[in-house]
């Protein structure tokens, strides 16, 4: 970007040349950020998810769709370390040691990862926020857990993030229970992203919100994904949400992947009979 900023004269011409050749803000990565290999989780005889494999590349948003009970939340739990799969590997490209199987990491290591390089956005903000702690404290917690011990700077960072998720910074000392549902969800996002994570797990992040609030949240998430180069695994049953947010799609049924591909390809030219049914069942507005 420095090169672009330094250009004078005919800015657009030069940018055009540059952007056409090098194509993206983010250099082509060497490898995937997350490699999931044959992840299987059973609940007794019942299958939670079976033999799930995929790669997630830096800056990519992967949508996981399927109806309730299809195993998408189980999969998300296995990937984010909240559930222990019975088999498989979840390789995460750590900053210091390269790809490491997070399932075989020690608990402290995984927790460290979970509060630095990962974000988890729950469907219900109550599950992801401390309802009795102020908005600023909620956002600042990750920083303090990471060793930040300067009140002024923590507050500054919290305030900056409230601004980025469009919450009036004057409400920094208010508790989340005084916020609307949409604000709570945005606060949860700020609380997670303050540490500059590289991977976000999102479980129905727009579920339970009014349609107009959903739109604003979707736009916010799109901007954050773009500006931070964030990768995300987005679990939802809302096909409209994945169409707008996800680059790629995984369609799950009965714990298994039935179809994967480019989001608009899966939605517009679905191959599997279940996907065709899913797509044709969406109400048109």
């Amino acid at each position: 970007m420095a090169l672009l900023d330094a250009s004078g004269g005919d800015i657009f011409r030069e940018e055009e040349a540059r952007m056409t050749s090098s194509s993206s803000k983010y250099p082509e990565p060497d490898g995937p950020l997350l490699s999931v290999r044959s992840v299987t989780k059973r609940y007794g005889a019942r299958i939670g998810c079976e033999d799930i494999s995929f790669d997630l590349w830096p800056g990519e948003v992967l949508g996981v769709v399927g109806e309730s009970g299809s195993g998408k939340s189980t999969l998300l739990g296995c990937l984010s370390g909240q559930l222990r799969p019975d088999a498989g590997e979840v390789l995460f490209d750590t900053r210091d040691r390269g790809p490491v199987d997070t399932l075989r990491m020690s608990e402290p290591q995984r927790r460290h990862l979970a509060r630095t390089d990962w974000a988890f956005v729950h469907q219900n903000p109550r599950d992801g926020l401390r309802m009795g702690v102020s908005a600023g404290g909620n956002v600042g917690e990750r920083l303090m857990a990471g060793g930040a011990r300067h009140y002024g700077r923590i507050r500054e960072a919290a305030s900056d993030w409230l601004g980025r998720v469009e919450i009036d910074t004057g409400r920094i000392d208010d508790r989340p229970r005084q916020f609307s549902g949409g604000m709570q969800q945005r606060l949860q996002i700020a609380r997670n992203l303050v540490s500059g994570p590289r991977l976000a797990f999102m479980d129905e992040p727009t579920g339970g919100l009014d349609v107009s609030v959903q739109a604003r949240l979707l736009d916010l998430l799109r901007g954050l994904v773009r500006d931070m180069g964030l990768s995300a695994v987005l679990v939802t049953h809302d096909l409209a949400v994945v169409r707008l947010l996800a680059d790629r799609l995984i369609v799950m049924k009965d714990g298994r992947v039935v179809e994967t591909g480019l989001t608009d390809q899966v939605l517009d030219d679905p191959q599997h009979d279940y996907t065709q049914l899913l797509v044709s069942s969406v109400l048109q507005v």
Binding site: M1, L4, D5, E15, M19, S23, S24, K25, Y26, V211, S212, A215, R216, L218, D219, R222, R226, L244
Partner: peptide, 21 residues
């Protein structure tokens, strides 16, 4: 497009994705 995103943003987005200021 995502509802509620201003027109100027909608049109500028392909450039933002490419990293233009």
């Amino acid at each position: 497009v995502v509802p509620r995103v201003p027109t100027l943003r909608v049109v500028a987005e392909p450039l933002l994705v490419l990293g233009m200021a």
